[in-house]
């Protein structure tokens, strides 16, 4: 295998590895909270693919294939992290020190749960999340 082909394979591996590592380690806060990590991985992979193209002599297609793949992944990943996943920073209706707005919502068994019922009982952590589609 030529150096170019070897670099091409390595670049694809780095790109796939960066994506897999992020998904597999989502449960680890350090990884989860630094999604720019996979973008850096993709940039590194693209760099390796550029090197592969620069080194290519006779058989050029593996290097170009790797460059096409890694740059697509880099553009897609960077867009997702820096644009797609952005959440607008609009003000909340409450601030620290305010009483939390009360509400009643059904729980998993359909039973209504009222926030105010916890008053005087114990601290409460409210976690708003997007859901799973």
């Amino acid at each position: 295998m030529t150096t170019s082909t070897w670099l091409a394979a390595l670049s694809a591996l780095v790109a796939i590895g960066a994506a897999s590592a992020y998904v597999l380690l989502l449960g680890v806060a350090m990884v989860r909270n630094h999604p720019e990590g996979y973008v850096i991985g993709f940039a590194l992979a693209t760099g390796l693919a550029v090197l592969a193209v620069a080194r290519a002599r006779a058989r050029r297609w593996p290097a170009w294939l790797a460059l096409g793949f890694t740059s697509l992944v880099l553009i897609g990943g960077a867009w997702f992290n820096f644009v797609g996943a952005r959440v607008p920073d609009t003000p909340t209706t409450f601030k620290v020190g305010d009483p939390a707005p009360d509400f009643t919502l059904p729980d998993a068994s359909g039973r209504p749960v009222t926030l105010a019922d916890y008053r005087g009982q114990k601290p409460v952590v409210l976690v708003f999340y997007r859901g799973y589609w």
């Binding site: 999604p35 996943a85 959440v87 620290v96 939390a100 409460v124 976690v127 999340y129």
Partner: peptide, 28 residues
């Protein structure tokens, strides 16, 4: 419309004591 991912901590009296709202929905 979707919720902004957020964590809000209330004390025993139902007072907001700490909260954090995501700027990137991947991050908690």
């Amino acid at each position: 419309d979707v919720p902004r991912p957020a964590t809000v901590v209330l004390d025993r009296d139902g007072i907001v004591r700490w909260f954090s709202v995501a700027r990137n929905f991947q991050v908690r």
